[in-house]
Amino acid sequence: MKGLPPVLITAIVLVLGFAACAVQFPNIASTRVVGNLLTDNAFLGIVAVGMTFVIISGGIDLSVGSVIGFTTVFVALVIERWGVPPLAAFLAILVLSAAFGAAMGAVIHVFDLPPFIVTLAGMFLARGASFLLSTESVPITAPIYSTVSDFALRMPGGGRLTAIAIIMLVIVIGGALLLHLTRFGANVYALGGSRTTASLMGVAVGKMTIKIYMLSSLLAGIAGIVFSFYTSAGYSLSAVGVELDSIAAVVIGGTLLTGGQGSVIGTFLGVLIQGMIQTYINFDGTLSSWWTKIATGVLLFAFIALQQGLVALARRPVTKSAGVAS
């Protein structure tokens, strides 16, 4: 399958890392810690799925962190100040964020602009808009928030699989199915291989670009709702830099930053690796939490170097021998 070897390496890094942590702090190897890890990184896991689609298609989406921030503020204000029912607020923000992504995709395609610039503009736009709504943290007290926060599946060993962790897992599985089993997924890989060639082969490149950025923003909207459940508040400065964390998770998960190869499962493993490093630092207690960033940086560098190596290997001429009946 596409991208399997890098994914295997990611999986091995995760297993070895987890084993090393467990040797030092035996308590880490419990469903309780794992459950918390999934809960703490639920929003990151959700945006990273969208980012995987974008990056495999050869693009990048820098706006997702800001979309999360905007979503939390929007949801908090609409529910708390205007008294709109939470479900209606959720629906509204999802439509809004999907439209935002579709607009970015359309601009990228129609004006043939680099996704980096367009989504950078989107990033400033969404962040600025959330400051316009409110510069202060708005607590959310709606009953649905405590209900959702209290809901959890008990795991053997006392761990809790929370609602937001379940949402993340469902999205990861759904994303994996969409990417690997559907025509849409195949077209995402095709775009990442070469836009020109894909278009020559009949792929509707414009529609695909719009749909891909729409998906990414929609997932960022869902991640924003999840983030508001996680913090029970809306704050315009929340999720700053999450776009970079999610890009890191995607790359550590074995997806080529240049597009064309990668997997959702790899991205999920990449999220878990970042969560694992964070957990280790919490357990240690003496390390600054910024060590998470340093460790992530080192891993990122290692994976990009590895990918370059694999790409160089793949560029060698004529490799596979073929049975040719003549």
């Binding site: 890989y189 095709a190 990442g192 291989g193 060639t197 894909a198 082969m201 064309g260 190869q261």
Partner: peptide, 8 residues
Amino acid sequence: VNLLPNLS
């Protein structure tokens, strides 16, 4: 060749 080397 105008095909996609990254696809099967």
